[in-house]
Each structure stands twice: as structure tokens, then as C-alpha cells.
Design a binder for these strands. Sequence first.
DNA 1: AACTAATCGAGACGGTACGTCCTGTCTTTGA
DNA 2: TCAAAGACAGGACGTACCGTCTCGATTAGTT
Lengths: 216, 216, 216, 216
Amino acid sequence: MTVPGASTASAPSGPPSAETPCSRPPGRPRDTRASHAITEAALRQLADVGYANLSMESVAGEAGVSRATVYRRFRDKADLVTAAIAANGGGDLPDTPSADPKGDLVSYLEEFDERFAESCLEVLGALVGAREEPHALALHRDRVISPRNAYARSLLEEAQRRGELSPQADLELALQMVAGSVFYRRVSGADSSPGWAKRAVHAIWESMGPLSSRRP
Amino acid sequence: MTVPGASTASAPSGPPSAETPCSRPPGRPRDTRASHAITEAALRQLADVGYANLSMESVAGEAGVSRATVYRRFRDKADLVTAAIAANGGGDLPDTPSADPKGDLVSYLEEFDERFAESCLEVLGALVGAREEPHALALHRDRVISPRNAYARSLLEEAQRRGELSPQADLELALQMVAGSVFYRRVSGADSSPGWAKRAVHAIWESMGPLSSRRP
Amino acid sequence: MTVPGASTASAPSGPPSAETPCSRPPGRPRDTRASHAITEAALRQLADVGYANLSMESVAGEAGVSRATVYRRFRDKADLVTAAIAANGGGDLPDTPSADPKGDLVSYLEEFDERFAESCLEVLGALVGAREEPHALALHRDRVISPRNAYARSLLEEAQRRGELSPQADLELALQMVAGSVFYRRVSGADSSPGWAKRAVHAIWESMGPLSSRRP
Amino acid sequence: MTVPGASTASAPSGPPSAETPCSRPPGRPRDTRASHAITEAALRQLADVGYANLSMESVAGEAGVSRATVYRRFRDKADLVTAAIAANGGGDLPDTPSADPKGDLVSYLEEFDERFAESCLEVLGALVGAREEPHALALHRDRVISPRNAYARSLLEEAQRRGELSPQADLELALQMVAGSVFYRRVSGADSSPGWAKRAVHAIWESMGPLSSRRP
DNA sequence: AACTAATCGAGACGGTACGTCCTGTCTTTGA
DNA sequence: TCAAAGACAGGACGTACCGTCTCGATTAGTT
């Protein structure tokens, strides 16, 4: 609120983000270990009991921390979970240009399916459902969805640049279809036959390859 | 819908013993108008305030009914919402074989996007989240997802039969991609450019058409 | 209500009380066996689970009868219990003049302590508590308390007549003290040392005997 | 009553570990005003509408407090009422030895009759009725009955010491008879003729006086 | 033999209270 | 300042009764 250190960060007075050289804010600094413990506990609970059954109390308890300490860092359950996914859940997207866009896309999909799809679905469900507070939804998109979206899209663009996909290919659509198939499997409860990711990506390459629209 | 006996048989009140096809179950029959009012109120609230903010009390109130009357029909909030979507939300899937599978698939996608995608996402999020009670999730899949899934699949099969899709085409994958793209748009917050459904279906036709794998 | 047969009895159209010779009311007569089963079940439950935990449903169930059948006979839980105690619980007060008032009073107290004190206390507690419906309280007093009161009093009067108690003795007070001691033991949780009844009655005889006020 | 720490310690919130006699327990202390308001509201409602019709909600409402705040202090309706009677209902038993045991006993009876008999009867009825949870009954006896019992008994003992009652007098019986008469009047609905308490006590003095058993 | 009128079983209905749980805010003491 | 502990208002949950009601199916006596 009245924090000097600006910070685009999550919620009530995010951590002073280290790189700002200004003199530290007065008073006792926040316990970094607590912060970690909290997000980790949140992730564990999210996986174990699900978003709805995750309670601030139990997260605080599992983190060995008082409830107030959680609320000082995260304004909301939504904020907490969102931030936890973003922070401890995956900061590991390569940003060097890919040498094998198609293969990388496949790997990316598989990893996403395994690590994010489930919790993303429930968190998103909850956030979409919470009318009158779109901030958390926006936050989650910013923190979790967008980066991955951008990464996947960059792979598609690279493929286009290399001529594997037609210059007219609708990459947005491609992205939606291939990423959506991950979600839909969760939605419908279909079990993933091995190689699903490869086949999905292949289908896109087939339909959006350089010759796709020139068939007789 | 307006059938008096043989109700949707959600949770409490098992089916009337099957072998007596006609004789009404003993006791005072349920008030059909109340049943309607309840599911309709549930749907309205689901659309208005979302799954999380929907309360049994307010549904009962809006339906002009006591809370007990709701719980007599639906064991749960999950059960209520699930059944409401299934019942009053859409009993309108054509079951005659399609004359134009591709066009029908497009229309179906558009209708689904408009009428179900949002609430389905939040309901599914909530249900997937509710570990330790998969019954509601299974129910929702049975009541809402599966029928539509089957319908869409039948369109794809018809297309295959007509030779629009290759006999080797992976229809399951096709379904996942095209239906998933609907969800993913909600997930990522992307706004739908007009014609998205047509383009998505077209992409599948492109990649799984009869000649798709014989290209040079 | 619209019953011809008058009947001072309990509640909604009591049984036609047999001795009225008028032609039986039309329609199916009440099942006498059910009536018995109900009051007996009520008594059992009263003893087993107490007044508060006794439910109309469980009484009906134990009696092998539907709930409506209970409510047709008794307007109320209070009415049911009250009537049950009065009916099946004790119609066995001797009305011949006593040959040994003191001894009979002792026996009476012991029997009352054993068979009525407990349930009487809770029923009375509930009925006294139920402001705005004194009918049940009055009923219970009429049906259960008053007859026993009168009996005990008649014993005291007989004792007075025989000269065992002074003509000036305050029999009302005597009754209250000796009967009250039964209740108070339940209230305070004191366990009854054997001979309590004898000692209590003896104390009254001591204090209200023919010579009691003439002591030096 | 107005003691800040060391509360009546009804149910939740165990005593502050006894061995630290002073240091306040951690966390925000309970709102003393709320505590008062609650017990007072409970007493008022107990008097007004009776035990059965007293609801936690209405007590909370009348106390200007949320329901949770009531449940934080009292685990139960029984616990609440019991504690309310014990706390705000009477902390006014003299503990100095009496100079006039007989007169004091009379006054005590009259006060008890007026202030406690009614609610005691219904509360006790309810508690005795609630099998399978004797804790509340025990509590009520500890908090309300026992202290008064002890007081009355001390008066009797003082009288014995002074020679007004015989050394062999059965004080327990005396207590039961004189206190019981208070209850029995409520039970039987008899209205108290003035002087009842004096007459009851007098009867005991008569029968248990120093000469009572030596009469010819 | 049909009609009438009450009973019976079964269960729906409105209403009310219960006790539990969780959220997000607040008020303490102590570090 | 932060941290730990916990009180607080508010509100939903699902359960359990109560007393009333509406059904169809019985079961008598009456016409």
C-alpha cells in the first residue's frame, strides 16, 4: 500500500525485489524462509486436496506460519495459489531460440500436461467463476498462462520461419488446438494414449504445412 | 423435461424399481413445478454469480422453495449444478444422422462455446478440485460432457463414412483438438475472432482428409 | 374435532371411548394395535434416549407405523409422551382406603422414584420450558401428576384420620416435602441410600405427629 | 465477573496452563463485553422463551455478536445456558458463617424459588434427558447446584453445631426435603401460600430438633 | 355390489435450529 | 516493523426434526 519500493508484484507490499538499491524499508524484514514455505505448502495442498479444499489455515499450518503471515504476503486465496504456481511451480521456460520447434513443442505439451493441466483447470475454474474480482484471473493469466502461451507461440513462429509451417498458417488457432487438447482430455476424463502430444502436433503440421492448401 | 414420473433421478430417491413400469411410487409425488424452478434458479445463478458464489439458500429462495426441498432432490451443490446443466441447460442434441457433418460440427462448436464453455469450465474446475468425492465429477461427465462428446464424435464418424476424413484418421484426437480449442480460448482469455470454429474444423479436415498422409 | 363421541381425551379426534352406545362413526376404525404400539414405543424411547432425543419418526418406526398415524392420535410430541406415560405407564393406583398409610406412603414413594421420577423430570422440564403452549403442561399434570398427588394426599388424610398426624398438620406441605425429596435427589445427583423413603416419611411423622407442637 | 484473564473457562480454550500465573495467553484476548452480553442475553432468553425455544442465533443476535463468537466460548447450547446461570445468574452466596441458620435457610429458599427454580427445572430436564452427553449435566451440577447445595448444607451444619438440630440429624435428608419442596411446587403447579419456606424449615426443625426422638 | 368415509403407508413440503468450517480483518504481546 | 496467536463478523454447508400436506391403497359399514 504505502510501500516505497514500487514493485509490480503480487499483493500487499510485495518483497522489495532486491535489485532496487534504495535503502531498505524500515522495520523488521520479512522472513524469506517463511515466504518459501508458504508457497511450497500451497503447491502441495493444491496438488493434494485441490483448490476448493485448500484453506489458508492449513497452508499456514503446513508452512509452520501464522495465518496473518500468509495474508501479509497474499491478499487472497486466489492470489496465494496463483503466485505459488507462478513462483515455485515453474520458472523454467527456455528462452533461447529452439533448434527443433516441433520436438520442443511436443515436449512442452507433455510437461504442461503433467505438471500444470490439473491444477490450472481447477484454479481457472474457480477464478472464472469468481465474478466481481477479475483481478485474480488476470493475475493468473499474466503469471502462468501468458508466459507459456508466449513460449509455445515462439516455437510455432520459429517453425514458420524455418518453413515447416506455411506463412499463412493461423498460429493462434494452432496454439489453441494443440494446447486445448491438453485441457480437453482432463475435461472429458479421457486417458492419454502415449504419443498423444506427438500426434496432436503432427496434425497441426499436416494441416498447416507449406503445401496444405494447395492440394487438388 | 416435463415428464412427471421417471425424473432425472439425480441422487436421493432411487428409480421406482424398474420392473413395475407404470405404478407410481408411494407417497406424495414431488412437486414438478418446484423441481423446475430449482434447476432454473440454479442455472440463472450459475450464470450470474458463478459456481463458487452460488449458494443453496439463494437458489432455494429464488426458486420459492425451502432449502430442504432442494436437498431432497440434490445431495450436494455439485449435484444440483450438474443436474441443472444437464436438465434445463440442453436436452437438444439432434440424433438423426447428419447430412452435413462438417457444417454441423461447426455449428455445434459455436453453440457449445456460447452456452456451455464458461459454466462448464468453472463447474469442472470445482469438481476436479474436489478430491475425495469423484461422484459428482463422474456425474457431470455422464450428464453433460459425454452426450456432447458422443454427438460430436458421431459427426466425425459420419464424415469418415462419407470419405471426407481418412479411414485412418484419429477421431479421438480430432475431437480433443477441436473441442479443446473452445476451452483454451476461455483459459487464455483470447477473444474469438469470427469464424474460429470454421477454421478449427477446417484444420482438422485438412490434416485428416483422405489424402493428407499421401502428400509428397 | 368434529367427533360425535365427545371424549375428554388427548387430541385430534380421540377414540370413541367405547362406553358411548351411539352408532360408531363412519369410515374405517382406528387400528387399536397401532395405538398400543405407539404409546409403548414412546415409553421405551423416553426411557432409552430421553425426551429431547425422542423423535416422532423413531417412535413411529419402532411402532411399525407411519408418522401420520402417530399425528392422527397425538397432536404433539408433548401430547404423545404425556399420554403414553399416563396410559401405559401407570394405571395402577389402589383406590381402596389404606390400612397402613405410613407404610403405603413409603412404598408409593419408592415406586414413584423408580418408575417416574426420571422421565417426569425431563418431561416437566420440557413442558415448563415451552412457554406459549401451556396445554401440554396442564395435560401432563392432569394425567400424571394429579392422580398420584391425590393418592398420596389421601394416604396422609387417612393418617390424620387415624390420629397418626395432628389435625392441624399442613398436609400440603408434607406432601411437597416428601415428594419433592424424590425430585431433588435427581436434581442434585445424590444417590439414594437405602431406606431414604422410610426416613423421609418418618421425618414428617415426627414433625407433624399429634404431640409435635406440644413439646416443652 | 469483570476479571479480564482467568475466565470462567467453560469449554473451548483450556485454562492458561496454570503454572504461569500472570503472563497473558498469546493472541487477541476475548472481548469481555461480548462475553457479558452473551450470558446476559442467554439468561434473558431463558427467562423469556424457555430453554427449548432459546436459540444460539437469537442469543448471538441479542448480544450483538456473531454466532461464531458464541460457539468460541460455549461448545453447546447446554454449555451456554449452564454457564450463564452460573455466571451472571448468581455469584452471591455469602460464605461467612451464619448467625441465624434457620432464618438464613428460609431466605435462601425463598430466593432460590424465585430466581432459579423455574429455569433450573427446565434446564435440568433437558440435561437429564440428553443421554449420551452427561458432561453438561455434570457441569450444571458443578456450577449451579453444588454451590447452593453446599451453602444450604453449611447452614444446617451450623444449626447442628448450635444445638438447634440433633447431632444425629440426617442433614442430607433435611436438605433434600426442604429443597425438594421448592421443586415439587413447580412440578405440581401448586401456588405457594406465603410462609411456605418458613413452614418447611420449621417442619425440619421440629422433626430433627434435639428432643425429637426422645418423645414418649 | 356399489358407495362413502375414514384410516393407513409413504413421503413431499416449509420452516427452523444445529454445530462445523472458512474467509478476511482486527487486536493483542513479544521479538 | 514483523511475527505468532487468536478473536471477530459474516456466511455457507449439510443434517435433523417438526408439524402439515398430498397422494394411492385399504377397510369398514351404509345404501
